[in-house]
Write a protein that binds this DNA or RNA. Sequence first.
DNA 1: TGTTGACTTTAACGTTACGTTAGGACTTAT
DNA 2: ATAAGTCCTAACGTAACGTTAAAGTCAACA
Lengths: 240, 240
Amino acid sequence: MKVNEVAKLVGVSVRTLHHYDEIGLLSPFKDPDSGYRHYTDEDLSLLQQILFFKELGFSLKKIKEVIHNPEYDQLEALQLHRKLLIEKRHRMDEMIGTLEQTIESFKGGNHMSNEEKFKGFDFSQNPYEEEARERWGNARVEEAKAQVMKMTDNDQELMNAIYRKLASLRHEDPTSDAAQAAIKEWYDFLNNHFATYTPEMFQGLGMMYVQDERFTRNIDQFGEGLAKFMSEAMIEFGAK
Amino acid sequence: MKVNEVAKLVGVSVRTLHHYDEIGLLSPFKDPDSGYRHYTDEDLSLLQQILFFKELGFSLKKIKEVIHNPEYDQLEALQLHRKLLIEKRHRMDEMIGTLEQTIESFKGGNHMSNEEKFKGFDFSQNPYEEEARERWGNARVEEAKAQVMKMTDNDQELMNAIYRKLASLRHEDPTSDAAQAAIKEWYDFLNNHFATYTPEMFQGLGMMYVQDERFTRNIDQFGEGLAKFMSEAMIEFGAK
DNA sequence: TGTTGACTTTAACGTTACGTTAGGACTTAT
DNA sequence: ATAAGTCCTAACGTAACGTTAAAGTCAACA
């Protein structure tokens, strides 16, 4: 196989293959006449390995070491690397936290009463707070609650606007483009304001919209049937 | 202030300050005679800002844009950046997951019975599973459980060995070097095998060792007083 | 067989945010 | 005044390729 074929097959650039050859990471057979590189099946599977490690965030230098060493070293390298990744993730968590604080301070004051703030968006107060704690743990709920408390008037208005827009669409097909566009707005809003929610919490939230009638009632403040509509739209949205 | 003073004060290299000057990010006053750079207090606070954004992962190019623009853009930039960070964190989570699977497959089979595996290490089965769910949430507990299930015979043996070593030391001072070395082994083991535990879970686990007598009984299988000893050693370990 | 178009090669500069010498000017303390 | 300490600019090095650029090779069609 020639460079371009390989490149297209595995989804890397020709330059990348050249580079790997240059640094001695993957050196295919070179036709002495034409100078063309020719990759065997073996080269390909080695390339797969390389890309695998790369996806895990290894540097090419380390990949080169790891790939040409006995098995035990590979395991050790994997474990070490995982440790580094986990540390990095912790640092990222801290960074995200700092960012969120900064964003809050940029946004300025929050002048609505807390009751006002919790209207329409609710699950960290009232009947189901305890249930939420059971389902998702203390720390998560506290964090979510703190974030809702810090919401700006502006954000609150934005959220209500999204709810109203959704309510106005609630008699249409939840899979329609308009409905999906609106649910995407809502999805983006949640993503921007409550990033600490795990994917499971998102899913669970969607489920509860229809399964738990207390949720249903709360959401249907904005229009009867809204909870059901949103749930269906969310499922559709998540499916693609 | 001259370069070196500034550098030492804020913890960056002189080269970094030169670089920021080169690219027009932070250009202090330059004495026309000596050519020396002189940083004012204003320069310093600007530098703080720069470093802050840098810590958040902004490129110098973006910092330059953000710092010289109206407020609204800054907020937008912050929000955009947080989004990117969150996406990156998700990708990292996936990478860590893949790494863990790979590590498992490297380690090979697991031939002990599940009862065997849960002996000595327990909190995802038996009386307190339900309690764990309440405290830390469903997903976390399930994840932890799955990881315990996948433990290799080897790992299991390793863990038991650590427990036995700790048990043999349990009548000594928990703050002694020997005790701390042993608790570090245990800490590293947990870190290597149950990376999905949050710091709070770690702390909580330590607390429960003495506060919850069901835990105490389970750990004390390896020797009476072990739970208390471990808890004290953990607190000491965490404090430094 | 000649030519054309698709593909290949090496070479080398560009990117990011500095680190790291290197050689020389300026300042400060003794 | 002289040495020690600090400052300057200039320029190459790093990681993992991207991006031209100039030139050789291959397959097919006329």
